[in-house]
Design a binder for these strands. Structure first.
Length: 349
DNA sequence: AAAATTAACCGCCAGG
DNA sequence: TACCTGGCGGTTAATT
């Protein structure tokens, strides 16, 4: 995808493949909850996702609770669209924390330039000071939600969320939910397969957005530790529109068909075919709401042989028909933060 | 719409 | 003995 209207030689392809993650380090302040999210980006990078982690802030060296010693740049870099700025929690953020004046300004400028701002735990207060929570849905550690709502009345604080995404501002609740949030960012950037690999590597159980009670099927059913089953799942996620036969899947997993079915069900609670159906239905759901495609086209794109078979499978799962879902979807007002399909140029609106 | 074909699944058993 | 694994055959479910 070539950026329309771009001129000159300033942007090389390699630049675009790297998503800088700037970690904001405040002077003389202990950074909390940092290791988990950074691990996620680091692991993703080792798996080919290309994140570049960079500690920034007004102070030259910071020692974190995790024992990390980080070099920070003396000045805050210019921030461009697509970057992630990770703001870790700090002690006393809700109190009298002294914040260098240029930090708030830098944050809001970076956001205006298109950077994604991600906070962990009490860092939501730092976002608040930068004015980034105005009119936005947000969350913080459960013990601080009341204080946050009080301090920033214009923020719509959500209590029961692991993390909340609103526009390019993502706030998370606490230590572990910072990992969930980071994984969600990885899923956005590099797809569900990458996210599930990273999650598995870190042996975390994750969900995508507890505030909606929603889980992603790509990331679900991954809480087990059976490598053969994971291989089969990876294969299905990658090729879920293809006709994958059980023997073929067994070959990928390195077991017999009989044994794979047994292991699969033991590890995930689902049979391979049922898992594949869930993957396909997940795609159908997003296609139904995000595009003007016929049921027939959606069915084929999601790997069903035709609309008829989709309708049957859909009915078995949801009790109604795909078109009735779409009607209900359209009747509802569109969501504020239109989580559009990734990739392509913003198709209209 | 019904019948035929094919694939998935599972109980059961045997060998290691 | 307890457990893991693969193969066989029958049943169920999907597809044509």
């Amino acid at each position: 995808v070539v950026e329309a209207g771009f001129q000159g030689d300033g942007a090389r392809l390699s630049d675009r493949m790297t998503t800088p993650v700037h970690v904001l380090a405040l002077p003389g302040v202990e950074l909390l909850d940092l290791a988990g999210p950074v691990q996620v980006f680091d692991t993703a990078t080792r798996m080919g996702a290309a994140y570049e982690i960079c500690f920034v802030g007004p102070s030259p060296i910071v020692t974190t609770a995790q024992g990390l010693i980080v070099n920070t740049t003396a000045s805050l870099p210019h921030s461009e669209s697509g970057h992630v700025i990770l703001v870790p929690g700090v002690r006393n953020a809700s109190g009298d924390l002294q914040l260098p004046s240029d930090v708030s300004e830098w944050l809001s400028r970076a956001h205006a330039a298109g950077a994604r701002i991600a906070s962990v735990c009490s860092a939501a207060f730092i976002l608040g000071r930068a004015g980034l929570l105005r009119g936005r849905r947000a969350t913080t550690h459960w013990s601080l939600t009341t204080a946050l709502a009080h301090r920033y009345p214009e923020a719509r604080v959500e209590e029961q969320a692991l993390f909340v995404e609103d526009g390019n501002v993502i706030t998370s609740a606490g230590v572990a939910s910072g990992i969930d949030m980071a994984l969600w960012i990885v899923e956005r950037d590099h797809g569900p397969l990458m996210a599930s690999r990273v999650a598995r590597e870190l042996v975390v159980y994750l969900r995508r957005d507890a505030s909606h009670g929603q889980t992603s099927v790509y990331l679900d059913y991954r809480t087990h530790l059976n490598p053969a089953v994971h291989r089969a799942q990876d294969y299905l996620v990658t090729n879920f529109t293809a006709d994958v036969t059980l023997p073929e899947l067994a070959a990928v997993a390195g077991t017999s068909s009989r044994h794979l079915v047994r292991l699969f069900k033991e590890s995930t609670g689902l049979t391979p075919a049922a898992y594949q159906r869930k993957l396909r239905l997940e795609l159908v759901e997003t296609l139904l709401s995000s595009a003007e495609l016929s049921i027939e086209v959606i069915a084929r794109r999601a790997g069903f042989s035709d609309a008829r078979s989709l309708r049957r499978v859909w009915a078995a799962h949801h009790g109604d028909s795909p078109s009735s879902r779409r009607r209900r979807e359209n009747a509802r007002p569109p969501r504020a933060d239109a989580a559009g399909t990734d990739g392509g140029p913003a198709a209209e609106r």
